[in-house]
């Protein structure tokens, strides 16, 4: 009797990447995280929009805002993907920040022509959950931004 291939229900893929604080790495890291999402049948909108855009924003934030492009500081990415969700954590070595400190709405008429201010807004729109916590409780630097997206 032919064996039925196992479903992906029990599969879990974990991935760790770390790289210097340089925006040139963003596209490559996005592709590395997107690959297991594709393997686990995330839908095409998640693969083409939600995951790459939200992750790019979080990586830019870690490189530019937290690590301030300091070549001595690195960014670490930990991704866990299974048949139900993607959880990806972006860890920087920079100064602490408050994700909610800049909460202007970029879609308001007075902000629509602003060049910046859409990053966090897009992360929140494209992910089910966006959280920030200290990378090393007790220390005084380092942030973890955790993005969660349920497989639709």
């Amino acid at each position: 009797m032919p064996e039925t291939p196992p479903s992906d229900a029990g599969l879990r893929v974990s991935l760790q990447v770390d790289f210097p604080s340089d925006v040139a790495y963003i596209e490559r890291v996005v592709d590395l995280v997107r690959h297991p999402c594709a393997e686990l049948a995330f839908n095409r909108h998640h693969l083409a929009l939600n995951v790459p855009v939200a992750l790019s924003e979080a990586l830019s934030n870690a490189i530019l805002r937290a690590n301030r492009e300091d070549p001595a500081k690195r960014v670490r990415v930990r991704a866990n993907v299974d048949a139900t969700k993607l959880v990806v954590e972006i860890v920087d070595e920079g100064c602490r920040f408050d994700l909610d400190a800049k909460t202007r709405n970029p879609t308001d008429a007075e902000n629509i022509e602003a060049e910046d201010g859409r990053g966090l807004f897009l992360m929140r729109k494209l992910m089910d959950d966006v959280e920030r916590f200290d990378a090393s409780p007790g220390g005084d630097s380092g942030n973890v931004v955790r993005l969660t997206l349920a497989r639709a």
Partner: peptide
């Protein structure tokens, strides 16, 4: 084009202006 991030959108807004 594949995807565009917020800074890409920002450049389009700035160029348009």
């Amino acid at each position: 084009t594949g995807y565009i991030d917020s800074s890409g959108l920002g450049v389009l807004v700035s160029l348009s202006k």
